[in-house]
Design a protein around this nucleic acid. Structure first.
Lengths: 197, 197
DNA sequence: GTCTATAGAATGATAGAC
DNA sequence: GTCTATCATTCTATAGAC
């Protein structure tokens, strides 16, 4: 029926990231914005650039999204929504070390397939602030980190979890592996991640 | 006398990052800019913000640095200059696995002590483009990656090197370890990095 | 080394027509 | 859903006085 909300993991329904539906025009804008944000960052991307990339005027963009921040929020919702599904899938068969391995694999799959957006999502100052200030994002990030930490909160566990998380996020954005194709990168990452745990 | 320029390592003198000398006024501006760039990113920081932070007008800032990019370049020079010294020190006693361990330790020290700037340096789109387009930076990054790869260029080595590099860079900026003090963080990082190699 | 004042372009955002 | 036209604000950058 509804989602579980136990002490160990998933959030209550009210705190879940709601999957938003977008019109065709909105989708065109979001697709262009994703590409531009990935290349220039959020602050480095103007509404004029987005409008030009879509092939419409600024006014048309503002008709679809009230503010620039609304575009950022819609994009973050989409990306984190994917991550939420991955986390759900990993926690499906609950408990044990299997959960962590499953989570790792899911996250690696996602990170590799969305390489271009990962850096922006993890490190762009505008998005970092957004994630820190909006309740639903806070709740989700806590759940994700919780799964990564597996209950522990000591320095050793924190550094290890931070390392696994940023190693995955960092590798897929690293110039050294820019030329590698997705499947090679994914295979190597899974191999190395398991050695880290 | 002058620096070595063998096949394996250091760059010729002409390609080394030259240590610039700055006036007191310039240093005040660079210090303020470093803090603001770290928090808002380069694109998210205006010259007005820098001027306000220093306590002068924009015109005074422009008197010290001809353009905003000149400020970015000066900052990147300073930070990479530190890294260059660390790389020099690590390659002092040449060869063997010792070099890699020494490099790791040096880089971790630097990354931990400059936590706030690391994210900007590694991931800010403006700086990423700067590093990719300016010759001296390209040369230095190649040298650094070369030391990290230890000669190998296969996918496995690339992913491993990218992982070590981004694990260090990523961990020190990660919210999970924000509360840890420098020495704890450094110790845990060195421990984990060695297990990665 | 810093100021006032300003130029000229670009920014985010809105009103109203089609 | 998109357009033209416009607003107020901010942006980088410069000229010239002190």
């Amino acid at each position: 029926m509804s989602s579980r909300s136990t002490a160990t993991g998933s959030a209550a329904d009210a705190d879940r990231l709601a999957p938003a539906v977008h019109s065709a025009a909105q989708t065109r804008i979001l697709t262009a914005a994703r590409e531009l944000f990935a290349e220039h960052g959020v602050s480095g991307t103007s509404l004029q650039m987005i409008a030009d990339s879509v092939g419409v005027t600024k006014a048309a963009v503002y008709h679809q999204f009230k503010t620039k921040e609304a575009i950022v929020v819609a994009l973050v919702d989409m990306e984190l929504g994917q991550l939420q599904l991955a986390l759900d899938a990993a926690q499906e068969g609950r408990g044990g070390p299997d959960e962590l391995v499953a989570l790792m694999t899911q996250v690696i799959d996602l990170a590799v397939s969305r390489r271009r957006m990962v850096r922006t999502l993890l490190y762009d100052p505008v998005i970092v602030r957004l994630l820190a200030e909006h309740r639903p994002y806070q709740v989700f990030m806590r759940r994700l980190f919780g799964a990564l930490l597996g209950g522990a909160t000591d320095p050793k566990a924190r550094v290890r979890a931070a390392m696994v998380a940023s190693a995955i996020g960092g590798v897929v954005t690293h110039p050294l592996v820019a030329a590698l194709d997705d499947s090679t990168l994914r295979a190597e990452l899974i191999d190395l991640a398991q050695r880290l745990m």
